[in-house]
Each structure stands twice: as C-alpha cells, then as structure tokens.
Design a protein around this nucleic acid. Structure first.
Lengths: 165, 165
DNA sequence: TATTGTTATACTCTATAACTATA
DNA sequence: TATAGTTATAGAGTATAACAATA
C-alpha cells in the first residue's frame, strides 16, 4: 500500500511455499560460499554424497540417489566428479555386479572431517538466530512434511531418535 | 546402524539446512506439476513475477528482481518469456527512461486469477498436514531467518501485519 | 560515474530416452 | 523382464562480464 515502504509483496509472503523457497535459496548461497574453496564446491549434491558414503561405505549410487532426491544420471555426474577429485572410489560389487559399491579414498577420509566441520559450522551459524525450541520445531515440521511428500526417501529418522511425529 | 532399515542418514538429517533443501525440492516439484499446463510452467520465477506485477503495476525489472532474489539478466529472461506469452508488457517509464514499467496485459489480468487459485490450492494442499499453529510457527521462523539472511529484500512484512517477530 | 536493461557466455541442475551389462 | 549404471540431449537456473542508453 505504502509506496515508500517498497512494493506490496503480501501476495507472495502469504504463501508458505514462497517463504521456504526463498529460504532455501539463501541456504544454498551460504553453502556455496562456505565450500567454494573445496573439491565439493558449487551444488548440494557433492558434499551430501560424501557425507552419506562416509556413513555408509559400500552403498550404491541408486541408494544414495534415493536419499538425496537425485535420479541415476544425476548421481553419475556427481560420482564422476568426486572420483576425478580423488575423494571417492566406485568398484563393482562382487555379489551383485550391476551395482557399484561406493567408498571414500584415503584422501576422501582425510577431507571428510574438514567438510563436516564446515557444514556444521555454517548450519549452526545460519540458524543461530533461532531459539533451541524454534530449531527443534523447525526440524520436526520439516520431517513431518518430508514424510508425506517424499515417501520414497526411506529411513528418514530410523537412524536418529525413533521419534514419531 | 541397522542395514534392514536402509542407510544411516543421520549425518544429513541432523542438519536443518539439509532438511529445508529437501523440502524446497519437494515444493518445487509439486509446483512444476501444478503449473505444467500453464504459460507460467517450469520454474518459480515466472509465476511469482506475474503475481508481483499484478499487485504492483508499473514496477521495474530490477525491483522485481530484488524481491525475488534474481539478478538483472535472470529477470530479462523471465520477462522475455512472459511478454512472448502475451501475459505481460514492458514500456519505458517516461519519468525515468532507463526503467521499464511492467504491467499485465488484459490476457495476463484474465489469467492471473486462475494462477492464484492454483497456487493457493497447492500451497494449502502441501501444508495441509500441519496444524494452524505449526503453519504460523513455520511462517514466523521463515520470516525471521529471511530478515537476517536476505536484508536486501525490503518490505518483507511491511505490507502484511506489521508483526515484529 | 552510477544505474537499467540487454546480450553473450558458461557452468550447474534437472529430466528424458536409449543403450549396456547384469540378474 | 527388470535393475544399475552409463551416455546423450535438452531445458531451466545461476553468475559474470561487457555493452548501450540514461541519469
């Protein structure tokens, strides 16, 4: 209404989806800045793949893709990049030779600690303005929505606290 | 830990940023589906630009870009597309001839109601699993974080309820 | 000199289809 | 036939630099 206060954007801010998309945009930019000097720079897929393989050595590309919301071609590109960077290795699984078992290289193992530290630091800094209660509430709501809209991503909280709701 | 329950993804789910990025991915896919049959299909920029210009006729591309988090080249592409689709018009501003004043065409005005209805319906459906209190809490937290991490986006709530978190 | 819009360029993400090799 | 991985391709998002017109 008041032109001096800038444009009327209530049409957009009234939509939760808009608020969350803009928030995600800000998160992505903060992370790109944080990881710009690493081999996992630019894009969310590389870092999360490293963290995931570190916690689950031997997992396949398709499994990782199901967790991260990427299809097979997308995973090929991510793994290609990490393999070229010398952080990750793919070897045919002897028991199921269609699969490629993913593991970190010694260098990948050495770097992962540094990446984790950067990720945790920036995650903490980004949400530092929230109270502990707000952070818990946000995590709970996000988990609830993902359980409905991404049912294919299994094990959403099986590995954490067995919380239900 | 338990292989039968799928991979251990607690490294990722412990980070709020990961949860929100995955959530945003789900939102984007739901919206792409919802608008796939319209001229504003694929991508968040076109629809939000239409809604924004509808509420603020005569605004410039840079102003819209500041609200939507797009730079000038990105806005050119979005406005190009909407102009070719016959939904939006750009005319040099007589008072400030560097600017292009954006307005909806009659056809754009006619379509905007339909788009709004789709957007509201899908926003409501996406978050329908949340209680009213959870929805308000989510909106409040998103606004709080955006105020910190996107200070350039002015008027974040000036047009709504003057709430001060 | 600074700003608005534009063009060109490049890199990434996303999605689809088709191919291979394995099962 | 179904699945895991690969390749090719195309569309959209994102970012930068350089330019023209205007202030």
């Amino acid at each position: 209404m008041d032109a001096r206060n800038g444009p009327d954007i209530s049409v957009l801010t009234d939509m939760l989806s808009f608020q969350l998309r803009m928030l995600s945009q800000a998160i992505n930019r903060a992370y790109d800045d944080a990881f710009s000097a690493t081999e996992a720079s630019s894009g969310t897929g590389k870092l999360t793949t490293l963290l995931l393989v570190s916690a689950n050595p031997g997992m396949s590309q398709s499994e990782a893709g199901r967790v991260l919301g990427k299809d097979r071609p997308a995973m090929v590109r991510i793994v290609d990049h990490l393999e070229r960077a010398g952080l990750l290795r793919r070897e045919p699984d002897p028991a199921e030779r269609r699969r490629h078992a993913l593991t970190l290289t010694p260098r990948g193992e050495a770097e992962i600690g540094r990446y984790m530290a950067i990720a945790k630091a920036y995650d903490g800094a980004f949400f530092s303005a929230l109270t502990e209660e707000e952070r818990r509430g946000l995590a709970r709501i996000a988990r609830k929505l993902r359980r409905i809209h991404q049912p294919e991503t299994l094990g959403l909280d099986s590995a954490t606290a067995n919380s239900r709701s």
